[in-house]
């Protein structure tokens, strides 16, 4: 299987490309000249020790860094052939194409239904009430949550368990029908069972979506991803096929991290 995917990834044009990306917080440089391709309909894992800049880099893809006053991004990031930092690009459009799931589940203090319906409502994606319900149910199904909550869609999203909340957030992201879903350590606050459910979910989601996941767990990266990029001290040390990175890394620093000597 691994050889197949490797061949596939070379065949597919990347949906996202980053070239020479620098990120500064004030005067401090958090990301140094990173170039990376994100292949379509695959899961790309960004790994590295904490503070290595992988989350910062992830947040460049949907310009979430714009919300931080002191943050400055330079370099070139393209989505489907368009520079996303171009003046003409509308972040609203960008973020509706590139969704995000955060480290800690952050459902709105609204009902389960309203949580999922939030995106379709602000983007006016539904033509009717029935259509909206349809979107919500489909999204909850795709997030593997529908069966657990079908009888209590009007209860607050915060009443769910941690793992369910995180899947609710995934459903909420899916409801906007994005091309890419960015996940920032989505399982770090979850127990192993909830984590396994979400990992399986991700595997089924990659048919329809491209996923970029930041994780501090190498096992998770190895389990779910096809592509892996290893970050250290704000630099991209090595990227490529997950299998290759984990079994036969080209760089010594990668080797050290994988074997547990740094990080």
């Amino acid at each position: 299987m691994t050889n197949d995917t490797a061949a596939q990834s070379e065949a597919l044009a990347p949906i996202m490309t980053a070239r020479g990306v620098d990120v500064f917080y004030g005067k401090k440089q958090a990301i140094k000249k990173v170039s990376l391709d994100i292949p379509e309909n695959q899961i790309t894992a960004l790994i590295g020790p904490s503070g290595c800049g992988k989350s910062t880099f992830l947040r460049c893809f949907n310009r979430m860094n714009d919300t931080i006053e002191s943050c400055r991004v330079t370099g070139d990031i393209q989505f489907a052939g368009q520079d996303i930092y171009d003046q003409k690009v509308d972040v609203v459009a960008l973020r509706s194409r590139i969704g995000m799931v955060f480290q800690k589940a952050n459902p709105f203090p609204k009902s389960i239904f309203d949580n999922v319906a939030y995106g379709p409502r602000i983007h006016s994606l539904s033509e009717s009430k029935e259509h909206l319900e349809d979107i919500v149910i489909t999204s909850l199904r795709r997030a593997g949550l529908y069966d657990e909550v079908s009888d209590r869609l009007n209860e607050p999203g915060t009443s769910l368990s941690g793992g369910q909340q995180q899947r609710l957030c995934i459903a909420r992201a899916i409801a906007v029908d994005p091309q890419i879903i960015l996940m920032d350590e989505p399982c770090s606050a979850l127990d192993p069972i909830a984590t396994a459910i979400i990992e399986n979910l991700m595997d089924s989601m990659k048919e329809k979506y491209t996923i970029v996941i930041v994780t501090h767990s190498m096992q998770q990266a190895a389990r779910v991803s096809q592509q892996t990029a290893f970050f250290h001290l704000g630099e991209l040390v090595e990227s490529g096929d997950t299998e290759t990175i984990f079994t036969n890394p080209a760089q010594e620093r990668t080797q050290n991290y994988i074997s547990g000597r740094i990080g």
Partner: peptide
Amino acid sequence: DYLLTTSPQMAKR
């Protein structure tokens, strides 16, 4: 689908 420029609906928002 992939167009990232401002649509009329977004302009209104």
